[in-house]
Design a protein around this nucleic acid. Structure first.
Lengths: 149, 149
DNA sequence: GCAAACTCGTCAGGTTCCTGTCAATCATGG
DNA sequence: CCATGATTGACAGGAACCTGACGAGTTTGC
């Protein structure tokens, strides 16, 4: 009761952390029914919108490292959900593509995740939901600004 | 440029994750000058507002496990920033208290963290900042609701 | 009063992720 | 044209965290 409302007193970062942890637990609960982990789902989300990404690009988009992304993609590859193929022009990089099974599983999992997120936001007004997204987009942009100092 | 603005397309959870990661990197950068890690600072924050908390209470407040909190407190204890003392009534629990050095270090680190957070929010209107907090508080509350199902 | 259920701190084991490094490859500037 | 720097994927090693379990202690319900 008190550990989530006043514990982060005055430190916005920890409030953001609690939101992320809570939402991750929610979508993790949905994804287990599809045999996917949260990072794996994130990778499928990226590859669905931008096929042919490399490991490094996925890592940057997910906010993790190349190694973690590499192991995660290996897991997806073991389940025949994605494929690695040599990049046509860059001989260092590998193109990642979702398989037919990967796309099918992803498009079944995505609605479940979206629905769960909407359930969490059910009690909020459209204005507040929009403002929350606006605030997060602005903060994310401000955070990437500071990285290049 | 594009990896933080459209990558989370439609999935709010990942947007929240990027915000948390960015803000954590920011305050982590400030805390290294004081020799503190982010979880250690979080623990000092909790203990400053509620002295005498137990390990388990700190773990719940920080959104982590008893073991992680235990090891973290051991680190703080090694630097003489907190003390463990037996609980007066509950013989299982241990009371955690900040030492004088712990309070002094914390009250030097807290303004640095606050200032860094304000810098990140510098370009936002007061209304948007307030709305962001309101959205996160509501989401955190909704997430703890779902946990007891 | 007492047994069952719960919570405390702790230990062991395993998983996940990160840092640091490497050869290979691409990009950039003189 | 070529040297320097940056990037990609991979490899080791370690740090941080979690799950599962345990004895000890407390709370709850009958």
């Amino acid at each position: 009761m008190s550990h989530s409302e006043k514990a982060d007193y005055g430190v916005v970062s920890f409030l953001a952390r609690h939101v992320w942890l809570g939402m991750r637990a929610a979508i993790e609960d949905e994804l287990t029914e599809f045999g996917l982990t949260v990072p794996q789902f994130a990778t499928l989300l990226m590859l669905d919108h931008a096929p042919g990404m490399s490991i490094a690009e996925v890592a940057r988009a997910c906010g993790t490292t190349r190694q973690a992304a590499n192991e995660m993609v290996a897991g997806l590859q073991a389940h025949d959900l994605v494929t690695r193929s040599p990049h046509p022009t860059d001989r260092r990089a590998q193109q990642l593509h979702t398989t037919e099974a990967g796309r099918e599983l992803f498009h079944k999992a995505l609605p479940a995740v979206r629905r769960r997120e909407e359930e969490l936001e059910a009690g909020l007004s459209p204005q507040l939901r929009s403002a929350g997204r606006e605030w997060m987009l602005a903060m994310a942009a401000a955070c990437v600004m500071q990285e290049k100092d």
